[in-house]
Simulated assay, not measured.
Amino acid sequence: MRLNRILLSTALVVVALVVQVTVLARLHLPGAVPDLLLLVVIGLALVYGHTSGALLGFGAGLLADIAPPADHATGRYALVLCLVGYAVGLVRPENGRLRSATVPMIVVVVAAIGSTLLYAGVGSLVGDTSARHVGLTGLLFSAALYDLLLAPFTVPLIMTLARRTENDPLAGEGPSTMGGGEGAYGWLGGGGRGSRIGGQRTGLLGRSARNRQGRMKGAKRL
């Protein structure tokens, strides 16, 4: 990933984790805890795509696994968010922009339910049966509800910030270099507007040079 993506993603993940641990986890809401870290991964994956989404999800999940007061096996949530980031990135539009809010809200609900099921499933493989005692149905409903209520205030903002990094003119890739359009460095190529202007200037300079050369030769013949 590019440097601007890494810096923005790291800042958003750290802020989300701090808010989730120090604020959301202390609300003691019934059922699941609102997953702000999941919403950050969703917002970034909807702009960056499935590869970056998987990498960001793994990094964010691993940070949550080792940050106190984590009480589960290291790598458990990293696997969950890695898979969620990859899957969410697959529905990313080509230009990174969504025309309606329906798709992100559906993605949030599906990701909340899917991440809860994956987390419980991985926990059962390593001997953690706490989801059975709490009640899986209540966890699924509360996770989807809390994340859906929190999504309108977070996901659009995250996507806006991520699109700004994609529009960086110093970046080597992004929307300006996709879809057959001219890239940020298109003026160095042979098919852009800049090359046509340069060709016209070269032609004018060439004709002027030839005219001057002709006048000089005529002077010599005299």
Rank of each mutant, 00 (worst) to 15 (best):
A78Y: 14
L79W: 10
L79H: 08
V80L: 12
G85Y: 12
G85T: 06
A87N: 02
A87Q: 08
G89Q: 04
G89H: 07
V91H: 05
R92F: 04
P93R: 05
N95P: 04
N95M: 03
N95D: 12
G96K: 03
G96N: 02
L98M: 00
R99V: 03
R99C: 00
A101G: 03
A101Y: 04
T102K: 05
V103I: 11
P104W: 01
P104E: 09
P104S: 10
M105D: 06
V107I: 12
V108F: 11
V108R: 01
V109M: 12
V109W: 08
V109Q: 07
A111M: 09
A112M: 01
A112Q: 04
I113Q: 00
I113D: 00
I113R: 00
G114W: 01
G114P: 00
S115E: 03
T116C: 01
L118H: 02
G121T: 15
G121Y: 14
S124M: 15
L125N: 11
D128R: 15
T129S: 14
T129N: 14
S130W: 15
S130P: 13
S130T: 15
A131E: 13
A131C: 14
H133K: 14
H133E: 15
H133R: 10
G135V: 07
G135P: 02
L136N: 05
T137V: 08
L139F: 03
L139T: 04
F141G: 05
F141W: 10
S142H: 03
A143K: 05
A143M: 07
A144I: 03
L145A: 11
Y146L: 12
Y146K: 05
L149H: 07
L149S: 05
L149T: 06
F153G: 05
V155W: 02
P156F: 06
P156L: 09
L157S: 03
I158K: 09
T160M: 09
T160P: 00
T160I: 12
T160E: 02
R164H: 14
R164G: 09
T165D: 07
E166S: 10
N167G: 00
N167P: 03
D168T: 02
D168N: 10
A171M: 04
A171Q: 04
G172R: 07
G172I: 02
G172E: 13
G172F: 03
E173K: 01
G174V: 00
G174Q: 05
G174T: 11
P175V: 00
S176C: 05
S176K: 00
T177P: 00
T177A: 08
M178W: 10
M178G: 08
G179Y: 09
G181L: 13
E182F: 15
A184I: 06
A184P: 11
G186E: 15
W187K: 08
L188A: 06
G189I: 01
G190K: 06
G190L: 05
G191Y: 11
G192L: 03
G194V: 13
G194C: 04
S195H: 15
S195M: 12
R196K: 05
I197G: 01
I197V: 11
G198W: 12
Q200V: 11
Q200H: 11
R201C: 08
R201G: 02
T202N: 14
G203M: 15
G203C: 11
G203P: 01
L204E: 13
L204S: 15
L204P: 09
L205W: 14
L205A: 14
R207Y: 11
S208K: 07
A209D: 08
